[in-house]
């Protein structure tokens, strides 16, 4: 079989398609405006299919931010500054994480498709994989949950604070820094990572996206 035989075969396919009128575009492209409306509704559904876990986390995040926000605004700083600072920072980190989630969803939905294929697919896959950045940031709030209940009446040189509260906070700070530095694409396959984030849809999406990024890299290299 010669090279041109494949192309001839493909041309024959074109003729067959022409004869069979397999795709009647007129039936659903006759009125582009109503077609666009239906499709944008479908696109929303597809987006939800793509990121249902993201949306669920986002909703949970909104509730959590509202709850913490209410506490922060109702407990004055002078009554318990440790609580106000801890809760305020938790609020800030959660807001940034949520902003990141929304930004990713919007970018995925709006990415232009008329760029070159490897470039566009790389952008899309990187966007999906960038969820890792949000997860990493999320770890940083861990020690703040151990300083919520600190109170100026017992923070200082007393055994309860020095032997229990402070070591626990330091331990969580170390752990948060470790997780922040090690939650990377390279560690996605490690057991400890799987144990921590489980087989959540988001983890699988990041893993798949990362796999595709590697595949694109291999495709772009002349291997």
């Amino acid at each position: 079989m010669e090279d041109k035989d494949l192309q001839e075969m493909w041309k024959a396919y074109d003729h067959k398609l022409e004869e069979s009128r397999i795709l009647n575009l007129q039936s659903w492209a006759v009125n582009l405006q109503s077609f666009q409306m239906v499709q944008s509704f479908k696109a929303k559904n597809r987006l939800q299919r793509l990121v249902p876990y993201k949306i669920a986390v986002l909703l949970f995040g909104i509730l959590w931010v509202l709850f913490v926000g209410t506490l922060v605004t109702h407990i004055p700083f002078r009554i318990n500054p440790y609580f106000s600072i801890s809760a305020g920072l938790v609020l800030l980190i959660n807001l940034v994480c949520m902003g990141g989630y929304i930004y990713h969803i919007v970018l995925i939905a709006q990415i232009p498709y008329d760029g070159d294929i490897t470039g566009t697919q790389q952008k899309l896959a990187r966007l999906q994989a960038s969820t890792l950045a949000v997860i990493r940031l999320g770890w940083l709030q861990m020690p703040l949950y151990t300083t919520f209940f600190w109170h100026k009446s017992w923070v200082g040189f007393n055994s309860g604070f020095l032997l229990v509260a402070l070591p626990v906070t330091l331990l969580f700070t170390g752990l948060a820094i470790y997780l922040y530095r090690n939650t990377t694409a390279a560690n996605l396959h490690k057991k400890w990572m799987q144990l921590l984030v489980g087989k959540s849809p988001e983890y699988t999406a990041v893993l798949t996206a990362q796999g595709f990024i590697d595949e694109i890299e291999r495709f772009k290299c002349n291997l």
């Binding site: 666009q36 499709q39 232009p112």
Partner: peptide, 18 residues
């Protein structure tokens, strides 16, 4: 069919860039 519609929709959405 789903993909054909999605392609047509994205083509029309990107039409101003052509």
């Amino acid at each position: 069919e789903d993909l054909a519609q999605e392609i047509t929709y994205q083509l029309w959405r990107s039409w101003h860039l052509y």
